[in-house]
Write a protein that binds this DNA or RNA. Structure first.
Length: 416
RNA sequence: GCCGGGAUAGGCUAGCUUGGUUAGACUAGGGGACUGUGGAUCCCCUGACUCGGGUUCAAAUCUCGGUCCCGGCCCCA
């Protein structure tokens, strides 16, 4: 037997129906916010991702040479492709450009719960503006998406990478070593960060100052403790969010987010029930287009880990019930199979989902089968009714039956 | 990449400690009891020891390695 490659999954019909249902909830929310869907290739030139994330991403990239000796990589995320697309084909579109995408991404990592080698991301980018108002629009959409799925136990945290970068730079950390420091701070590894900073001749009171900044966590009231522009900026962001009715957010200047290209506001959402892989959404404002040969354009975006958020919903007991066909057509005997095929076709032409017995089952077994495929109605094609151009319709929940003329059948089912 | 725990029909499992019947049950699927009425009951059938090597008269069981899953570390764009 050949199994799925490590870290990949098959989606059986019940699972697939559920995924489509929730994907479409996310799409609907994005459209309501005025975003439009795009699609980019599943593989790109490896260079694209190296430009965005640095050469160390290579070890977790599905990268290979194609037959034309091109360096290709399966996409590990979709922000870089989206911005590449913007630079190539949308840079003169009216601003802001608001786009969203849904698709699979690939990372060569050790799989565990909520982490696959092939996984699905839903993301959006607002390109052409980075201001409190547009940042709030993006955060607000992310929050609406999570809510639209019905997830209850989650937390959204907003930070500002600019203020921390500035403080580190002011303290005398050379620019090329900032990432090292930020990485320790992201994990709140103060015991490791302190000697690191000391080795860069950062004075002790500056270190304490940096640490306390990353510990600025709480409701919007902690914004009072953030001096200067960044504090004002976040105040405005939360002001807009509040006007949009979004209050359940936390300020956390310890939200660092790994990459260099984030410039200001950053945010993430987590579902605590998921344990180690609890982050379900991450984003912020950035500039990336200039790396791909375009003009420098400020953008704000985020991505939702679709697999993880479904997992979190499952842990909360959110159930999805797959639907069955509206009608299941059963001929009473073999002489009526042609008529049954005609009735099924009639229903389908009218937009009623209709399944039909193809196994040659007898009445009893056929009804049982209709029940197990969750049909709403069984359409029984019998000799007696056939004479008068009608069929028997059985409500599979109540067991009630009535005779309906062939011509009225589709409307009868649609209107029920 | 590192540490640890697992894997028995489509699903859920018994058996493994202490090697020895035809690998058992439940569920599912197909058929029948029942020739035009389901979710009940009964009967029949289908269907599994993750893969490969080793030990042994004999391996689901002991052992080594691979694969995959799970928990944690690293990473997490």
């Amino acid at each position: 037997m050949i199994q799925c490659p490590r870290g990949t999954r098959d989606f059986l019909p019940d699972e697939m129906e559920k995924r489509r249902f929730y994907e479409n909830k996310l799409r609907d929310t994005a459209k309501i916010f005025g975003f439009r869907e795009i699609e980019t290739p599943i593989f790109e030139e490896a260079e694209l991702f190296i430009l965005r994330s640095g050469p160390n991403v290579l070890k977790e990239l599905y990268a290979f040479k194609d037959k034309g000796d091109r360096d290709i990589a399966l996409r590990p995320e979709m922000t870089a492709p989206a911005i590449r697309m913007f630079v190539n084909g949308m840079s003169n579109d009216p601003k802001p450009v608001k786009i969203f995408y849904f698709g699979q991404c690939f990372r060569y990592e050790r799989p565990q719960s909520g982490r696959y080698r092939e996984f699905f991301q839903f993301g959006a980018e607002l390109i052409g503006k980075a201001a409190p108002e547009s940042d709030a629009e993006v955060i607000g959409m992310a929050a609406s998406m999570i809510k639209s799925l019905g997830l209850k136990d989650y937390k959204i945290r907003i930070g500002h990478i600019g203020v921390l970068r500035q403080r580190i730079s002011d303290a005398g950390v050379p620019a090329e070593r900032a990432a090292e420091v930020l990485q320790k701070l992201d994990k709140k590894l103060y015991d490791e960060a302190r000697p690191l900073l000391e080795s860069m001749n950062v004075p002790g009171d500056s270190i304490d100052d940096i640490f306390s900044l990353t510990e600025t966590v709480g409701g919007t009231e902690v914004l009072e403790r953030i001096p200067g522009e960044a504090g004002d900026y976040l105040k405005q962001v939360t002001g807009y969010l509040s006007a949009m009715g979004i209050e359940d957010i936390e300020i956390d200047l310890g939200v660092v987010r790994g990459l260099d290209y984030y410039t200001g506001m950053v945010f993430e959402a987590e579902a605590p029930a998921l344990g180690a892989e609890k982050q379900i959404c991450g984003g912020g404002s950035y500039t990336l287009s200039e790396l791909f040969g375009g003009e420098k354009v400020f953008s704000t975006g985020f991505a939702i880990g679709f697999d993880r958020i479904l997992l979190a919903m499952e842990k909360e007991g959110i159930k999805y019930d797959p639907a069955g066909p509206d009608a299941y057509v059963i001929p009473v005997d073999d002489g009526l199979r042609l008529k049954a095929a005609g009735i099924a076709a009639l229903l389908r032409r009218s937009g009623v989902s209709a399944d039909i017995d193809l196994m040659g089952r007898k009445m009893g077994k056929a009804l049982k089968h209709a029940s197990s495929v969750r049909a709403k109605y069984a359409i029984i094609i019998g000799k007696e009714e056939a004479g008068s151009g009608s069929v028997t319709v059985r409500d599979m929940n109540t067991g009630e039956q009535r005779t309906v003329g062939d011509g009225e059948l589709a409307d009868f089912i649609k209107n029920s």
